[in-house]
Design a protein around this nucleic acid. Structure first.
Lengths: 218, 218
DNA sequence: CAATAATGACTGACCAGTCAGTTATTATAG
DNA sequence: CTATAATAACTGACTGGTCAGTCATTATTG
């Protein structure tokens, strides 16, 4: 086949670009309206093609959905894993970098809709949920857990229960990205990361960092 | 009319009980499959009646949805507001009581599905989202914010940005209840409140309680 | 003029909402 | 205490619209 990587950007034939254009359009609509309520005609229209074209690149609505979820996972994971190696001698900075990096690479991008979408549809697509759990959630948690464990080893972080602490730590970030894709319209104030993130890091770190007179509950 | 409040419990005619039975069945299915993917035939079947009966009590699928969301709000709010009055002289205990109370009254009950449902459908039902935001979210936040402010006034809680701290504090609880209604099957470990909640309170409080040598980030 | 890309009218299944009819309960009459 | 009428609760077959998925046709390109 003659050079398939040409992608003339303004010509009509854009075989190479179509799948990701369609997946991006689908992500937006799935996040906005939900999987079941999204019309494939609308997805195609948003991507500037007809429904027939969509079926040239995806077998079914379900396979489009799977592509939407799968897309963009690898670069994020790779970035996290490289951070881990770079910062393993400063576990607290590593932890901050992982959480802030998640926000930059996911929370602040188009990908932020994926958590909401996956949460909404996990029970309708159990196999996909299992895939996502193994390839994204578990791997992400392992990174944060690793940072906590390094910090605990070196006496920088208090001896917390690591698995549940990881969840507690991720929850505010996930929730913020979920919120921005749902209640943003009637609750714009709640969706200001520049206000939320510093408070988040402050609360989280001052609970995690080992300090002399850490008190118990009254 | 002769006594309409009789409600023979096992006879076939149960006019009084039907709406809540239907709403409960609908909540379960909406949370499980999503609003759009839920069939009214299925809701009716789960409530042990036919679809025709459902339409005796609700005008439309949408009004059923609204009833599902509205149901059970008032008792929860009332409980929160009474807690506030009872415990206003011990703000830290008040904060714990509000958060733990939310878990007991919402997180650990059928109502736990409502956050997920509202998040998934907020953009499809903007008026309902606004209602929910005003009547539930804002009022709930006001309670937690009040507890924080009392604690700050009395020097028991650090001077954090209250609005964003409230969100950060609620996020792990909301996330846990959302998780239990979505990824529970493939991630049962993550859904153990007996493990998660103590870690949550530990992390949260040790970040909030004023302590002598509270350090800044490195 | 191939070969490949794209189209949009079409179809068959599905489902929200309706309504004429059925069954149970209560009231009234004989 | 039947028999009959009146009412209230409920049913499920039906309809009209919607939408995922198909395919014969048209457009574009080399």
């Amino acid at each position: 086949m003659s050079d398939p990587v040409r992608a003339r950007s303004n010509g009509r034939r854009r075989k190479e670009a179509r799948p990701s254009e369609l997946a991006e359009a689908a992500l937006g609509l799935f996040v906005e309206k939900g999987y079941a309520a999204t019309r494939l005609d609308e997805v195609a229209a948003r991507a500037g093609v007809s429904k027939g074209t969509l079926y040239l690149y995806f077998d079914s609505k379900e396979s489009l959905f799977k592509a939407v979820i799968t897309m963009g996972i690898d670069p994020v994971m790779a970035r996290g894993e490289s951070m881990f190696e770079e910062l393993r001698d400063d576990p607290v900075a590593l932890l901050r970098a992982l959480l802030a990096g998640w926000w930059e690479l996911v929370g602040a991008t188009e990908l932020a809709g994926i958590p909401k979408l996956m949460i909404a549809e996990a029970r309708n697509f159990p196999e996909l949920a299992r895939f996502y759990h193994e390839e994204v959630i578990s791997r992400g948690r392992a990174l944060v857990a690793g940072a906590l464990e390094l910090g605990i080893e070196r006496g920088l972080i208090r001896r917390v229960d690591v698995p549940s602490a990881v969840q507690v730590l991720m929850a505010p970030l996930l929730m913020l990205s979920v919120w921005r894709t749902s209640f943003a319209v009637c609750d714009a104030d709640a969706c200001r990361p520049e206000k939320y993130l510093p408070t988040y890091f402050d609360l989280i770190l001052n609970g995690l960092l080992v300090r002399p007179g850490a008190g118990e509950l009254p």
